[in-house]
Structures are given as C-alpha cells and as structure tokens.
C-alpha cells in the first residue's frame, strides 16, 4: 500500500512516515500543496493523508482539484482541532475522514485502514482473537458461540483494544480513540468503562481476554 503524506511540518511528516512504515505501508512525503497536486495527478497512490494548512495550494484546494478530476483516491485530512467549518467543508469536498491535531498514530492508522477497507473492499470486516469474533460491519460480537450485546461505546472500546492485539494501550490513548477529545477530567473513567466491558466479555468465561498492564493501561491478550 502506497500512501502520500502531505504535511509541511517536517517533524510531523516524519512521525507519520515512520509510524506508517512500521506498519508495513510504503510512504511518499511531500511538503506543499502544489507538489502534492502534481504528484497526485501523475502518480498512483492507494490513499493520501493531507494537512489542510499547507504552503502554496492548501489541502482543501488540492482535494477540490482531485475530486474535480474524478479521482476517488481515499483522502484523510489533518487539521488543527476546533475548525468545525474546515471539517464540514472538507467532508463536503469529498474527504473520506478527518483527524484533528494532535492525533495518535494508532488512531490515524486505524482510520486509514478503515478508509482503505471501505474504498477497496480489501481487509477484514471480521476480526478474530482467540475465541472472540468481532464483525465491524454488523457490530456483532461473539465468544465462541455466545453472542455478546454491547453498547456503542463498549463496542468502540473493544474495537480500539483490538487494533493492537497483545500490546497495551494507555488510558489516554483509549480515551482519545473511543471518546474523542471530550473529557478533560483525567482518565479514571476508562477504568470504569473497561470494568463494564469485562463484565460482559470476560466474566462469563474462563479465559480472560482483557488484561490490565500495570502502570501502562489495557491490552487484549489471552491469559495463559
């Protein structure tokens, strides 16, 4: 998968680049809107991650030109949070997703995968871990043959933990991914949410899947 990352801040760009490379993507970088427009017109990519605020042609304008040329390349826009109008405009112009800065790489990768899956049909809508089956399309959760009913937030929490099976996510990362940027009251509530998910997902079963990683956070991991 070849991804074009358009970001004028070099450090942010290299952060995205290394994050994507670690996860097996091929990454091309460019730092201004005009170059991005040119490369998008002449080269083939599987998706683009683009900052809105760019020198030269801005992200929204690059996107507008891309869609005017009937190019349906999946595009994720990055921008400073709170610019609701930019976001609405971006989505109206045909962006596939929108991520406010500062974002988490885990989140960006998850969004990128979701966008690619939607666009190309490639990728699994059903995720499995041990005896757990999660269908992200139908939102059906099963352990073995037992169907488990989850609320929307509980499902989002499970989906979030399943992004990095076997690796712990911190409370901040979980809070950002599931609840967005809404709580500034600390992260204790993540513990409450995880306890509730456990009650449905783990308590009735002998094999526990959600593990507490001391000092770090939580992970989906089959206990021994």
């Amino acid at each position: 998968m070849r991804i074009l990352v358009v970001e004028d801040e070099r450090k942010v760009a290299s952060l995205i680049e290394s994050g994507l490379r670690e996860r097996g993507f091929t990454v091309d970088l460019c730092h201004d809107g005009d170059t991005a427009s040119l490369r998008l017109a002449t080269e083939t990519f599987d998706a683009a991650i683009m900052d809105i605020m760019l020198p030269g042609r801005d992200g929204l304008s690059v996107l507008r030109k891309l869609r005017a040329e009937k190019n349906t390349l999946p595009v994720i826009l990055l921008t400073a949070r709170g610019d609701l109008n930019e976001r609405v405009e971006g989505l109206e112009l045909g962006a596939d997703d929108y991520l406010p800065k500062p974002f988490s790489m885990i989140e960006l990768v998850a969004r990128l995968k979701a966008v690619l899956r939607r666009r190309t049909g490639v990728g699994l809508t059903v995720q499995q871990f041990a005896d757990l089956t999660v269908n992200t399309a139908t939102r059906e959760v099963r352990r073995g043959d037992v169907r488990i009913e989850l609320t929307a937030r509980e499902f989002a929490l499970l989906e979030c933990l399943l992004r990095t099976p076997g690796r712990a996510l911190t409370r901040v990362e979980i809070s950002q991914s599931v609840w967005g940027h809404q709580f500034d009251a600390g992260t204790n509530f993540v513990d409450v949410a995880v306890q509730r998910l456990r009650r449905k997902l783990d308590d009735p079963f002998a094999r526990k899947l959600i593990q507490t990683v001391r000092g770090l956070g939580y992970a989906i991991q089959a206990d021994a």
């Binding site: 801040e9 942010v12 290394s18 994050g19 949070r81 800065k101 500062p102």
Partner: peptide, 20 residues
C-alpha cells in the same frame, strides 16, 4: 491554533512511539 498544535502533535507522537 496551528502554532500550538504542531508541537503538541510531535510531542504526542514521539511519546506514543516510545511507549510502544
């Protein structure tokens, strides 16, 4: 908005990378 968020993004990204 832009000026504050760029460094926040970088710091956050680096911390996350180190953590994992």
């Amino acid at each position: 908005s832009h000026e504050l968020r760029t460094p926040l993004t970088i710091i956050r990204g680096e911390i996350e990378r180190m953590l994992h």
